[in-house]
């Protein structure tokens, strides 16, 4: 009953021997200093803490560390080094889809999650894809537009 787990975090293997009941969100922020993952509601309602685990978008606030043994985790810090991120970043900038910015890391990873499974989504599919990520500034229209622009201009990346 060894209490040690391993996982890949932003491309690097990590060994973790801390509390397996701890929230992934807190461990990312406090142990790994990955503060791009935002701590919002801590109850799965806001999506600010979204990360991609084994290719799926998840709320890191609702994941206990024991659940990520053997998993591959991508946070906004790891994603920001990719060409896909640049395409999304340019698109978000071009239509002012970032205002206060608190939802943006989660929203960008939600965008990646949509486009990686469906490179040319309909508006409806985009809206479903970001439905777990709340934004209190933009009213969503500019974010939906940005994802459409990224899909078009970044065609071939996804």
């Amino acid at each position: 009953m060894a209490n040690e787990i391993k996982f890949i975090l932003n491309g690097q293997e990590q060994v973790y021997d801390g509390n397996l009941a701890a929230r992934l969100l807190d461990v990312l922020r406090e142990k790994f200093n990955l503060t791009g993952t935002k701590s919002g509601c801590k109850e799965g309602e806001c999506g600010a803490c979204s990360v991609i685990i084994d290719g799926k978008l998840m709320n890191s606030c609702l994941i206990a560390m024991g659940r990520v043994d053997g998993s591959t985790i991508l946070t906004i810090e790891g994603y920001s080094e990719t060409e896909r991120f640049l395409a999304l970043s340019d698109a978000y900038e071009s239509v002012s889809a970032v205002q206060c910015g608190f939802c943006t890391p989660g929203m960008i990873l939600a965008s990646e999650s949509i486009l990686s499974s469906n490179p040319h989504p309909s508006e409806e599919e985009v809206r479903i894809g970001i439905s777990g990520n709340l934004c209190r500034c933009t009213g969503y229209n500019s974010i939906v537009k940005a994802i459409g622009i990224a899909a078009e201009k970044g065609s071939g990346l996804w």
């Binding site: 009941a21 109850e43 606030c61 609702l62 206990a64 024991g66 659940r67």
Partner: peptide, 22 residues
């Protein structure tokens, strides 16, 4: 502990979980 989406809303680091996802 299967998905954890209900359990973790009231996350307590003293909780003793039996992870069943494997």
């Amino acid at each position: 502990y299967v998905g954890g989406t209900d359990l973790m809303i009231h996350a307590d680091e003293k909780s003793k979980y039996l992870f069943l996802h494997k």
